[in-house]
Design a protein around this nucleic acid. Structure first.
Lengths: 296, 296
DNA sequence: CATTTATTATCGCTTTTCATGATGTTGATT
DNA sequence: AATCAACATCATGAAAAGCGATAATAAATG
């Protein structure tokens, strides 16, 4: 038995609408002959006539079997169309995207990225997965921000370098660069030893300075508040400072460090060898564009 | 763009289940090559890859687009299968049949017909449309019992003749045939003047007898009860009497009429030129068979 | 490191199906 | 009887399905 084909059902549906094979053919862009054969094949497939052809100029009429086929068939056609439109929406970027991030990284670039994505694709569904554990949740997300180009099955794109700077209560240091030696024994506020905080403290050690860490907090805003309150200074990526405090913050001064600490790097990661959705592709593109504006 | 085909979606679904093109092919009775091409065509149709093929013995994995297609596609397949099974049930006679009838006609043959249909097709849906109006509801039913082979676009099959007999309270008449003349002025119970009751009264008239109708009721059982109660006699089709009263009904006697009244005829009608469902075909067949047993 | 193994992709070929245009058939209408 | 408006059928060329063989790939294995 031949397989029941969507286009045959479409033909049948059109015939029912139009009341004649010929008009149905015209509507579908086929020949009457073709429709005739399509219906014939459909009838072979379902094992019986779906139309009574009274002959002459009288319109064809559904048989009982035809009613059964039509009912289900239209359902089928509707579903097929739903699928097609879902695919089209997907390809137009109206899908869903899951972006992984770390709180300490996400403050700068992510909000702009999300804003532009939503602008371009109002229908899309953007989910942010924030995870402070050391285990990056890649594999569960489409895209992920991170500060190192993890190994393994992961592709990456470096976005920009974010140099570390010293943030101090106004007056604690004279304007201009500050040598690491000056920080030996100075009171410092810092992140907990996650992320690349260890790298910062490594930098102190290799410059022969041992800071006195008087407070640790994970939130960037919290750390800066402590500094503003004069509790101590902090070594933070520049973008964190720029974003979290206005440039003309009266209570703070920002100093370059000498010698320079290896800057924090920002990467966009995704699972290797995996086809991305158009939305994810676009997200990468936008992220790179935005990164340009930060790379001084 | 190529049209999205059910068989491609089926292939995709199988690939997802089996984790490999080859195994999917085996399951579907295709070659691996064929499945590969089917997926390729499907991908052309939806405008992007649905699988990531990592190469080597690693199983293929769905892309985001693939997930969209699979979700809708499986739905589509389910609907297609639902249609096929509906068609099969229909062809097996598990469909529905609407039978039109008149109460005064239906008591004899119909119950047996329904019983046998249900026996053969336990899943089928039999609906009886009883209509006492003079307008036969043909067109709204598949099959219809009637007492004349209506004209127009109606095909018919004569089932049997049902001769009229006289039913009387025991003792009212001597055993054996009764001449019409004997009924002149006799108390009679009768149907209301619908159906072919007029024909009966016509028979009286043309035989020079004028009965005294003391009661009219539409229900056969009611009429017979009246006769049993001695209120009068009745002229009824034989089958009505046979069915409604046991043959050895102590209170009744049954007499042939002389001269014979043109018997009531029972026809099975259906709309001409219309393909009947297998269930209806079978119903006609059974009705004819049953009719044989009544045709003396 | 070379080999094996488990995969998918591709090529050429045959068979089937699709769609067409021309022609035949049917039954009402004039 | 001729005409008209339907659907059916037939022959044909084009497209696609499906197959078998072969290549290509990447992990696993020795």
């Amino acid at each position: 038995m031949t397989e029941t084909e969507l286009r045959h059902i479409a033909a049948m549906s059109a015939v029912v609408d139009e009341g004649s094979f010929g008009r149905a053919a015209a509507r579908l862009g086929y020949t009457q002959s073709t429709v005739s054969q399509q219906i014939s094949l459909l009838e072979k497939a379902v094992g019986g006539a779906v139309f009574d052809r009274p002959g002459g100029p009288r319109p064809v009429r559904l048989t009982p079997l035809g009613r059964v086929v039509l009912t289900h068939g239209r359902d089928l056609l509707a579903k097929a169309q739903a699928m097609q439109s879902a695919v089209e929406r997907f390809n137009a970027g109206e899908g869903r995207i899951d972006i992984g991030t770390f709180q300490s990284l996400s403050n700068v670039l992510l909000p702009q990225l999300v804003r532009r994505l939503r602008q371009e694709h109002p229908g899309c569904d953007i989910r942010l997965v924030e995870d402070e554990s050391d285990e990056p949740p890649i594999g569960e997300v489409d895209l992920m921000f991170f500060d190192s180009p993890v190994g393994g099955d992961v592709e990456h794109r470096k976005l920009f370098d974010d140099p570390y700077v010293l943030v101090a209560p106004r007056g604690a240091f004279p304007e201009g660069p500050v040598r690491f030696g000056r920080l030996d024994g100075a009171p410092m506020v810092a992140w907990p030893p996650t992320c690349d905080q260890p790298r910062v403290e490594q930098a102190f050690a290799s410059n022969g300075a041992e800071p006195r860490i008087v407070f640790r907090a994970a939130g960037n805003e919290t750390v800066l508040s402590m500094v503003r309150a004069g509790i101590g200074s902090a070594v933070l990526p520049r973008l964190v400072v720029d974003v979290a405090s206005s440039a003309s913050d009266e209570a703070l001064t920002v100093h370059e460090l000498v010698p320079e600490v290896a800057p924090r790097e920002l990467y966009l990661l995704w699972q290797a060898g995996r086809t991305q959705s158009p939305l994810a592709e676009r997200a990468i593109q936008i992220a790179v564009e935005l990164a340009e504006t930060y790379r001084v």
